[in-house]
Design a protein around this nucleic acid. Structure first.
Lengths: 187, 187
DNA sequence: ACCATGAGAGAACGATCGTTCTCTTTCGGT
DNA sequence: ACCGAAAGAGAACGATCGTTCTCTCATGGT
């Protein structure tokens, strides 16, 4: 038999991959069950509903995002380089062949209007990212407005790369960020 | 009885409002029928399937976007002001109480992976906008890279405003655009 | 006035999906 | 070895949804 904790993560991983690739409502619980290699009964004993499972998937995406951004900025020395590392992280992500946009933006568009919990976790993720950027901009001596601008660039790069299918949005966003940062530091 | 053309636009308008407010899969054809005040049979004689209706709705959104951007930039004299007018247009849109993000981004997230026609029209809209921005940037003497950056700012403002629910993303995007444009013109 | 065409209203159909239930099997404790 | 609890496999249920069909009625041409 499979360990409880291991079963949970297998279900979450399977659901994450399916939801992200196909969209949430296009994936049935039976698909999740098959991909996770688990019985339906056990699936429902681990997660009482599809909505709860979805929230768990999105929570997992939140920590993956945080880890990815942290890892990318780990080798950067200055706050400026840590900020720019965000766009390098995006660049690597966009180049993955299964990239299909930001899971939070996609989930918000699909279910945000009908499931308040989805809208709430999407908001939470975006606010957390804005907070991260704001702190680095503050260390750098920049204004909160600059932080908002840098966050908007990151969001725009994600949707642009998703829909166009080309990863160069990360490069353009990075160049724009460099100019905006330089502009503030000059003043 | 209702004129054929009038019936079509009533259906498209009703479907547009419902799809945009609640998401596409959350709206049944019966909801569209009721909102449009039409029989189900006539609805299906006008649009052979929900997918076709959705594409028609998105085509309508494309012309609305173009008209809105054109109208906003009509009073602007210089290419620079025409470019900045895009963000003013976004600002007005974000302030509408039924604003819920970009219909193309939302549709792409919900159905882009499963309906190629949806992915295609989302791509078409984004490319058309990028083309519009690129032409204005070119008139202004700027590079295609600047155009890409300005487009990314507009996309990012839309998702940020949608999820955060606050319209100030348009203001931040506009300020960033001003800096980026000034930066290129100085060089 | 009569009939044929087409439209309206909504029931009906078939498929899908989230969730639960049943039946069988497995397995650990004594 | 035996029994009871739990788990697997998947059938089943109830609801929803896209789409079609049926029945009725209005209407316009002759």
């Amino acid at each position: 038999m499979i360990d409880q904790e291991q079963a949970r993560s297998r279900v979450v991983d399977a659901a994450d991959a399916l939801f992200y690739r196909r969209g949430i409502q296009a994936v049935g619980m039976d698909d999740v069950r098959t991909a996770a290699g688990i019985s339906l009964k056990r699936l429902y004993s681990l997660f009482p509903s599809k909505d709860v499972l979805l929230i768990e998937v999105l929570k997992g995406r939140m920590v993956e995002w945080d880890e990815g951004v942290s890892l990318a900025s780990a080798s950067a020395a200055t706050p400026r380089d840590k900020l720019l590392a965000v766009y390098d992280f995006l660049d690597g992500w966009f180049r993955q062949d299964d990239f299909r946009g930001c899971a939070f933006i996609n989930s918000f568009g699909e279910l945000g209007a009908v499931l308040p919990s989805v809208a709430a976790i999407a908001l939470e993720q975006k606010l957390a990212f804005q907070h991260y950027v704001t702190e680095l901009v503050d260390e750098l001596g920049g204004s909160p407005a600059l932080a908002a601008q840098l966050a908007i660039l990151a969001e725009g790069a994600q949707t642009t790369a998703a829909i166009s299918g080309r990863p160069d949005a990360a490069f353009h966003a990075r160049r724009a960020a460099e100019v905006l940062i330089a502009g503030e530091l000059a003043a």
